[in-house]
């Protein structure tokens, strides 16, 4: 196995020079996301540095409770981020989105780590944390798209919802077109990326494993599994989020609550 080439701090800093190109582009086209980009960049560096530090310890301890606590924190951060990015109010959505996150991770980790990879110890930090993280990270992006689509459409097309509520034969049917559209919009990008994976995109995890010295065949097998886990995780999370959120987003007359959106 070849030794991996480490990246020096200077080389890492050099990488940041490339950011000049998009920033110049943003300034040229007067796209007001320079500040946001720089903050996100700063956060990424700090968060990843801290994680590198934490993971060292977490891997060393390899304690089920600590690992579960770590994944729980990831789920809660994902929940808050989804609500914030979708422009919704916290009080109605923390519970449904957090429950969806926990259930989807529970199903996926139990299935993939327990039955597919057949780990003796499913909470093994080296598997449990990165796989949960990959699924949650992807689920976050797709949940934000799907959930935003769902509530924005319900809000903008209220008349259609009310039309179907009266003329259709159930509340379930009146929400069906909105749910279909949300699931499609949330998962379409994932379907598209799955269909071109290996052709125009080499996924980060696989690349990382190969760079880390794994054989490409092993890396690809893991990548296939992780893609399956991501797709299933995103689907379960999005569908559950919508179904559970429906219990909080409507009043007893089936009307959309007026204070769902952050002002």
């Amino acid at each position: 196995m070849k030794e991996i080439v480490d990246i020096g701090i200077e080389s890492l800093a050099l990488g940041f020079l490339l950011m000049i190109i998009p920033i110049v582009g943003f300034i040229y086209f007067q796209v007001k996301i320079v500040k946001e980009t720089l903050i996100a960049l700063f956060r990424m560096v700090i968060q990843l540095s801290l994680i590198a530090f934490y993971l060292e310890y977490i891997f060393e301890w390899n304690n089920a409770w600590v690992n579960v606590a770590w994944v729980s924190v990831m789920i809660l951060v994902g929940t808050f981020t989804t609500i914030k990015r979708a422009g919704l109010t916290y009080r109605f959505f923390i519970l449904p989105f957090a429950i969806s996150g926990f259930i989807s991770i529970l199903i996926l980790d139990a299935f993939f780590l327990g039955f597919v990879i057949r780990l003796d110890y499913v909470f093994d930090a080296r598997y449990f944390i990165p796989i949960s993280g990959m699924v949650l990270g992807n689920a976050l992006n797709h949940n934000i798209v799907g959930i935003s689509n769902y509530f924005n459409r319900l809000s903008k097309e209220q008349e259609l919802y009310y039309f179907l509520l009266i003329n259709g034969n159930s509340r379930k049917n009146s929400l069906a077109p909105f749910i279909r559209s949300a699931i499609k919009s949330g998962l379409n990008p994932l379907i598209a990326s799955m269909s071109v994976i290996g052709l125009i995109s080499l996924p980060g995890m696989m690349t990382g494993q190969i760079l880390g010295g794994s054989s490409p065949v092993v890396a690809i097998k893991y990548q296939i599994l992780i893609m399956l886990a991501i797709f299933v995780g995103c689907s379960i999370n999005l569908m559950l989020s919508i179904l559970l959120a429906n219990r909080f987003a409507f009043d007893s007359f089936g009307r959309i609550k007026s204070n769902l959106f952050k002002k």
Partner: peptide
């Protein structure tokens, strides 16, 4: 009321 609303709506059609 909220208990009867589904039954009442089932009796109606609405042209917006």
């Amino acid at each position: 009321n909220s208990d009867t609303i589904a039954t009442i709506r089932n009796k109606m059609i609405w042209l917006p």
